[in-house]
Structure formats: structure tokens, C-alpha cells
Simulated scan of single mutants.
Amino acid sequence: MDESDYLRRLVLITLLCVLPSVYCKDICVKKTPCRCEFPNGTYIDLTPSANNIAFKTLTSLTPRSQDEATLTTYYYHPCHDITMNTLNTKDSITRNNCDKPSALCRHGSVWNKTRPDTLIKFEEYYEYIGSSNDLEFAEDGSYIKYLNKPSQALVFLVCAESDDQLEIKDLSDPSSLELIFYSRNACLKPEHSKVDISAWDFPLMQIACRTLLRMSNAENSTTTTLL
């Protein structure tokens, strides 16, 4: 066996070893902003949750000091963006970044005890957090990452046989909000069809196939010459 023949066989063996690991990797591939699918056909689909025209909300109170507190509400709408109605409080808003369609938005109001035993609102704002146009599924399908560079928001998906519910997971990092979305639609669904080859990396497959074809032709040419 000459050196060129040895190299061709080495490339063939490498491709045969690498390609299965690439295309059989257990990754939940994003199909739509609502849905990701694993190679075995199982999938997660939040579409039913997004069919509701209203946001899912979560409100929390964070005391800043004895005389000041912030009331925060998170608005979440999976899969596609909708516009918030902030007209009723327009005059009291200090800033509003949620005046465009969004999947994640945060409303905050800061209250101060400027009079004894009385909290008075002195600041109100809406902050855009993320859109369905710029999101990624985790490889294992455990969360959706909404990108709003330099910040991001992670919405962890938890299978629950109950109505959709939103909770806070971690607010310690201002640049990386973490929420939890409990839903029956976050449960892994059984295979509905054969493996979808549309998720494959076709350029890589084409390169591999062309390489294998050239190697096969070279082998056949060598054999013909020898005969």
C-alpha cells in the first residue's frame, strides 16, 4: 500500500467515525421560536401557550431600604412577539423600551416613603428584555435564551401538568435574567415522524460525499489500471 492509498483510507475511516457523532448528537434543534426537535423525533412545542393573546405575568416586591421598594412585573409571551398596552399610564412613565413587539418585558415602579406610613410612586419604567426573533434553545431543550446584547434572559422550561406559570429563578446578575416557565407544553412530546434531515448540515454532508466519491473513483481507476 503506497502513501497516497494509505492517506485515502485514513480519511475514509476518519469520516466514518466523525459523521455519526455529528449527526447523531442528542441536540434539540430549533424549528421555530416555539419548537425544537431531537434527532429521535421527540420534541418540545410551546405553540399552545403562545396561542393565548395575553402575556404571562409575574410580580415581585424588592425592598431597597426601609423607606423605598421596587415593584417589578415580568411579562412573557412565548414564541412570537406582541405589543404591550401602556397607554393608561403613559404620563407617569419615565422611560419605555417596550413600545415595540416583544416576547419579554419588565415593568418596574419605584416607591418611596416620603410621608409617614405612605409609599408614593416616583418612578415608573418599561424595559425591553427579548424577542422571539433572537432566541436560542439549549442543546438539551431545558431553556430558551433570549438575546438582547450585551444582556440575555434565560427562561427555563419545566414540565408541569398545570396551567402556565412564570417564576423567578435568579436575579443576582443584572445582565442575565433567569426565569422559570412551568407548563404542560414544556413536556417532551413523543416522536411524531421520522428523523427530519432538514436539521442536518448539508454543506458538510456534501463535502463528505464528494470526498468519498473521489476516493471511490480513485480506487476504481487504480484497479482498472492494474487489470
Rank of each mutant, 00 (worst) to 15 (best):
K56Q: 06
P63V: 04
G41W: 08
T57V: 06
V29A: 00
A54Q: 14
C34E: 06
I53G: 05
C28I: 00
P33W: 02
C28R: 05
N52I: 03
I53L: 09
G41S: 10
T42E: 13
F38A: 00
N40F: 05
Y23Q: 07
N52S: 14
K25S: 12
N40D: 15
N52D: 14
S49H: 01
I27R: 07
G41N: 07
S49D: 15
I53M: 07
T62I: 13
S65N: 12
S49Y: 07
P63F: 05
S60N: 08
C36W: 03
C24N: 15
G41M: 08
F38I: 04
L61C: 08
C36D: 01
P39Y: 09
P48K: 05
Y23S: 00
T32W: 02
K25F: 12
T47L: 03
C24D: 10
R35K: 15
V22F: 14
Q66F: 09
V29R: 07
R35S: 12
K31Q: 14
S65W: 06
L61M: 12
V22I: 15
I27N: 01
V29D: 02
S49G: 08
T62G: 04
I27F: 01
A54E: 15
N40E: 14
N40Y: 10
Y23I: 12
C24W: 12
K56G: 01
P39S: 12
S65Q: 11
I44E: 03
K25R: 15
T59I: 02
A50L: 08
L58D: 00
C36T: 05
N51Q: 14
S60D: 09
T59N: 07
Q66T: 13
P33S: 11
P48T: 00
L61A: 11
P48W: 01
T57H: 02
T42S: 14
Q66A: 15
T59E: 10
E37P: 08
T57N: 05
K30R: 11
T57E: 09
Y23N: 08
T42G: 00
C34D: 06
I27K: 04
F55W: 11
R64L: 15
T32N: 07
P48M: 03
T32R: 00
T42Q: 11
N51H: 09
F38H: 07
R35L: 06
G41C: 11
F55N: 04
T62K: 12
